[in-house]
Amino acid sequence: MMSCREVCEKAQDFTDGTLGPLSRAKIRLHLLMCRNCTGFMDQTQQTSRLIKSTLAHQKASSVDPVLLAELKKRKK
């Protein structure tokens, strides 16, 4: 039986889907029986989602005129 500490340590890899099938199965089994780890896993997954959406909405600065000038050189 995997301990809560181990589940906590593997929570990010579980969220990323980078664990092997055996570890995944052990964690799923633990989560079925442990409300605390289920809560922690939910925190980990929500954090990952929030980071993704925050980074996805980052705006780039406007394109520098130097780059636009370089681009113009290509137009014949």
Binding site: S3, C4, R5, F40, D42
Partner: peptide, 14 residues
């Protein structure tokens, strides 16, 4: 965690 690897205090439910 305590010595047996259980949470000392439960994580908050978000």
């Amino acid at each position: 965690f305590d010595d047996s690897g259980r949470w000392r205090e439960p994580p908050m439910l978000w």
